[in-house]
Computed example of a mutant assay.
Amino acid sequence: MRNSARFPHTLDGLKETVVIWSAELRRAVRSGRTVVLLGLYSMFSALVLLVVGWLTGEVRAAVAKQLEGSGADASASVQINEEMRKGVLGFLTSDDSAMIEALAQVPLEVLVVFKITLFFLPAYIALMGFDQISGEVGPRSMRYLTVRARRSSVLLGKFLTQATLLLGLVLIIDLAIFIYARVANPDFGFAAMGLNLLKFWLAAIVFSLAYVALTTLCSSLFRAPAVSLVFNFILLFVFWLMDTIGRASGDTGSLRFLRYLSPSYYASDLLHPGLAQFGASGAAYAVFAFVFLMAAYGILRARDL
């Protein structure tokens, strides 16, 4: 009887979440901020892609010119380019042979741009949703929502809105990057392009979930959106510092445990072909997202709206 009594309440909560999610998503899509943030992310990605593409082309041209001057044949040029590619892949993937083999068909421009944009993606997420809760709590318009819906439904609906919006924006940018890579690298076939586009997009989304939840938490802590944004950036810097110090400590340092407390530490295996490695990273980001959301809910439930 207890379970049957609770079941309708669960359905009501799900309905409230869906209603809030759909209404907030429509409002977000129509807002000018979405267009501005898409343009900002697009220009940054395009700039990085063009610079990386130009540098890659210059290096290849310099190697080809040097080999031509020394009288080496075409096979030597191909071999040297392949060794250079493996060296860059080894640096980007920490010399993981399985990842180097799995990413062998992906142009270097895509990998470098992915690594750089992934580093700045948490800051982009903070700019996107720093006022998702504080923007309602500050002017006290949140109380009108909580009269009609549970606080948990409001929180989850706003979290899903930002996650959905980010999912679409990242897909647009990744698609543009892969189209550029396909045009610039004729040997990068459509089958490999489609498969790797899905893989990179999924990796970016899994990576982003924890940071979307972190933004929700920061937005729940304060009434002023500007304070939420500043505090969010402070936490991002703290997490980056923990990861950097933990990695610098190596496997025997006394501070090596700090890296395990930072979400960014688990990003390295998001492109791993092994299901166990990818699953472990995905589970870590799911745990971070769950902890941040539960903390946000506890704060929102306890505070006076």
Results as ranks from 00 to 15, higher is better:
G32D: 04
L166V: 05
T252C: 01
V51H: 02
L92Y: 07
A104M: 07
A280Y: 14
G69M: 13
F292H: 07
L300D: 02
I245C: 04
A62D: 08
L37F: 12
N185D: 11
V35I: 13
A289M: 09
F222D: 01
S228R: 09
L261V: 08
V35G: 07
F119G: 03
Q277F: 09
A149Y: 12
L293G: 02
A226Y: 12
W201S: 14
I179N: 00
A224G: 01
P139W: 13
M242W: 15
T146C: 11
I172K: 00
I205M: 15
V35L: 15
G57W: 05
D73K: 08
L50M: 08
L55P: 01
L11A: 15
D131C: 03
D73S: 13
V18A: 09
P122G: 09
I116D: 00
W201R: 01
L37G: 03
G253D: 11
M84S: 04
Q105A: 14
L160Y: 12
T252Y: 04
A226S: 12
V19I: 10
R27F: 06
L275H: 06
L217G: 01
R259Y: 02
P263L: 05
G71N: 10
L202K: 13
F7Y: 15
M193H: 03
S264Q: 13
R150T: 15
S281Q: 07
F237A: 15
Y180A: 08
F257K: 03
F278I: 01
F233Y: 13
L171M: 10
M43F: 12
L255V: 09
S75G: 05
F288Y: 13
R151C: 11
L236F: 08
T10V: 14
V206F: 06
L11Q: 15
A62E: 10
G39D: 10
A98H: 07
I20P: 00
V63F: 12
I125N: 02
K86M: 11
A296H: 07
S152I: 14
S152Y: 06
V110T: 11
S70L: 13
L14S: 09
K65S: 14
N185R: 10
H9T: 09
F292D: 05
V287T: 07
G168L: 15
T10A: 14
R301T: 10
A62L: 13
D187P: 01
S281K: 04
F119E: 02
F222H: 11
H9I: 04
V230W: 08
L270D: 11
T93H: 04
G90N: 09
A184P: 02
S22G: 00
L175K: 01
F119K: 03
A62V: 10
A104V: 07
H9C: 00
A191H: 03
L89E: 08
G138A: 12
I20C: 01
K65C: 02
C218G: 03
A62C: 02
L89T: 04
I100N: 08
E68F: 10
T93V: 09
G274H: 05
R223C: 00
V113W: 01
L47V: 14
L175M: 09
L145Q: 11
M43A: 15
V78D: 03
L103I: 04
I116R: 05
L171E: 00
G135D: 13
P107F: 01
V18M: 04
R140I: 05
D243M: 14
L293F: 12
A64M: 10
A204S: 11
Y297Q: 08
V212Q: 07
I20T: 00
G71Q: 09
Y266T: 03
T252L: 04
G168N: 05
F231H: 04
T146H: 03
S75Q: 14
S77L: 15
A181Y: 06
